[in-house]
């Protein structure tokens, strides 16, 4: 089967955009992939051995998390596995919460000074 590698992980697959693997299940395919390219392991799997939460793996058009057998789903030589890290973000920031708490602290401080005056 073919595994498609996203841009940031090609540094660990000798620049290859796709890798051919012989495997019986999705789990076997991913295991063979990191065996062939050990540098991928830490980027794909956490210390608990599970796929990192931001790593999406699609078997053809299906997210493996929503397949009945998940990582144990069988694969055939004509199947394609696509690894795609999530892309998200936004201007909502933990910093803003800090700013807000700072403002509240300042207001409390001013209120306290008024009480003392």
């Amino acid at each position: 089967m073919t595994i498609h590698i996203p841009t940031p992980l090609r540094a660990y697959t000798e620049g290859n955009e796709s890798v051919s693997i012989i495997a019986g299940t999705v789990k076997d395919a991913l295991a063979s992939l990191v065996e062939a390219y050990p540098g991928l392991r830490g980027n794909l799997f956490g210390t608990d051995g599970k796929l990192r939460s931001f790593v999406n793996v699609y078997l053809n058009e299906e997210d493996i998390r929503y397949l009945n057998l998940k990582e144990d789903s069988p694969v055939s030589p004509s199947d394609e596995l696509t690894i795609i890290p999530s892309i998200a973000g936004g201007c909502l920031s933990a910093d803003r919460k800090l700013d807000l708490s700072s403002q509240l602290s300042a207001k409390s401080f001013i209120a306290k000074r008024r009480q003392l005056a």
Partner: peptide, 10 residues
Amino acid sequence: SSTDIAEAHW
């Protein structure tokens, strides 16, 4: 933002 860096993986 802190959200941008937390959710940047590429």
